[in-house]
Simulated assay, not measured.
Amino acid sequence: MTTMIELWRGCVNAWECDELGHFNVRFYLARASEALANLAEAAGLNPIQRADALATLIPQTLHIRFLAEARPGAPLYIEGGFVGHDRASADVVLVMRHSGTGKPAASFAIKLAHAAPDTAQAFAWPDRFAKAARALQVETPDFAAPRGLTTRPGSRPVSLSAADALALTPIGRGRFGPHEMDAFGWMRTEFLLGRVSDSVTNFAAAFPEEWAMHAGEPSGNIGSALLECCIHVHRWPRAGDGYAIRSGLKSADTKVRNIVHWVLEPATGKPWWTMEGVAAPMDLDQRKLAEIDAATQAKVEAAVVPGIEA
């Protein structure tokens, strides 16, 4: 095994922060995508994000842990390497760290395919890749392992009719725009989180204390913070495709809530991607997870959807 190599370095821009006052989750994934392209190049592949590329790397499953807040101006860097690979896919681990302390800010465990940019169909790695990938092979740090969820895809069929049958809550709806696409016309990876992040505040049953604040009730300055998530990509959207997000609570204890999101194509009912997130209410004044009273906890537990999976 080798040590991780540096793959990206930069900072948190103020305009990339959200209502919680810290780096929005989509930008973690945007920086990880840049790091992934640099890792590919280190492994001897041609630039994978250029419009004239003959091959690219397409994420299939992404497990992310958000380990420490990143506030405006914070300097950050990403290091990483390959965990393993087979004929046409690979497992990669990336770690984003605070530059000043070296403390992990986030980890990314990504299963990806070596694929044709025009069709997204996987095909075999070039011969030169195996030797280069072995030289870049690393171990997954303990803190990057799943903690509050499983990374296995669910067995339940995912569709609009299944969402209706489970009475999953509509939290988002819209269209993917040209500004969200990559050089090949597929949606960029960061919008797997971006579109859910834009919509989750509508999920009143999962965060009644935050919803009370939006409804004008006295409830303190509360937001919802994502601590961990796993995303399974079923298909990649193109510009102009529509989406609808249907969500349900999988479980809830006194600290965190596991929430499942199905991002669906309304015209066909088929899934674009599914996601399970581990989230918690956050006291934005004290910058820590909020205390949950018994009445709120009972309300949240009553909203759990038995058997829901990502």
Results as ranks from 00 to 15, higher is better:
L57I: 08
D182C: 01
G100E: 13
L76Q: 01
A132I: 04
S159A: 02
A302Q: 11
E19Y: 15
K111Y: 06
R65T: 02
W125N: 09
N258H: 08
E34H: 09
G172Y: 01
H179I: 02
L284Y: 02
V138F: 11
D86S: 15
L226M: 13
N258Q: 12
L193A: 13
G242Y: 04
E209T: 07
L62H: 13
K131C: 14
A298C: 04
R128G: 10
L76N: 09
I48F: 02
A279C: 14
T268A: 02
I5M: 09
F66V: 06
L36E: 07
I231S: 06
T268N: 09
P218Y: 03
L67I: 01
T61P: 07
Q286S: 12
A295V: 07
T151E: 06
G174D: 01
H85G: 11
P72G: 00
F27S: 03
A32V: 06
E291Q: 12
L227T: 08
I231D: 04
P75C: 11
G223N: 02
H232D: 09
D285H: 14
V263S: 03
E210S: 12
V305H: 07
A14Q: 12
W211V: 13
C229P: 01
G73C: 00
A135W: 04
A130S: 15
S224N: 13
I231M: 03
K131F: 12
G102K: 05
T56I: 05
S159H: 03
V83R: 13
A204Y: 00
A124L: 10
G102L: 08
A280R: 02
D293S: 07
S99R: 11
E180S: 04
A310K: 06
V95D: 10
M213G: 14
S155Q: 12
V200S: 14
A51I: 08
G307W: 00
G100A: 03
C11L: 14
D127V: 11
I245H: 10
R9T: 14
F108Y: 00
V304H: 05
D182N: 03
E276N: 15
K288G: 08
E217S: 10
L193C: 05
A68W: 01
E41P: 10
P117M: 00
H214I: 07
D253C: 11
F82V: 00
K103A: 14
R195T: 14
R173T: 15
I58N: 05
D52I: 00
T169W: 03
R235A: 15
P281D: 13
A105C: 08
L62V: 09
W262E: 09
A43V: 03
I222E: 12
G220F: 02
F27P: 00
Q121R: 13
I259L: 11
D164P: 01
R71F: 01
L192P: 09
A106I: 02
K250V: 14
F123V: 05
H114D: 01
P178M: 09
V83A: 15
G177M: 12
G185E: 10
G102N: 10
H232C: 08
E276I: 11
A88Q: 15
M187P: 14
L284N: 09
A205V: 07
A135C: 04
A40T: 08
A115Q: 05
A215K: 15
V233I: 11
S99T: 07
S159Y: 03
Q297K: 09
M96H: 01
M213I: 13
A74Q: 11
N221I: 11
G307A: 01
L57F: 03
R173E: 15
K270Q: 14
H63C: 05
F108M: 06
E19Q: 13
P59K: 08
G277R: 02
R195K: 12
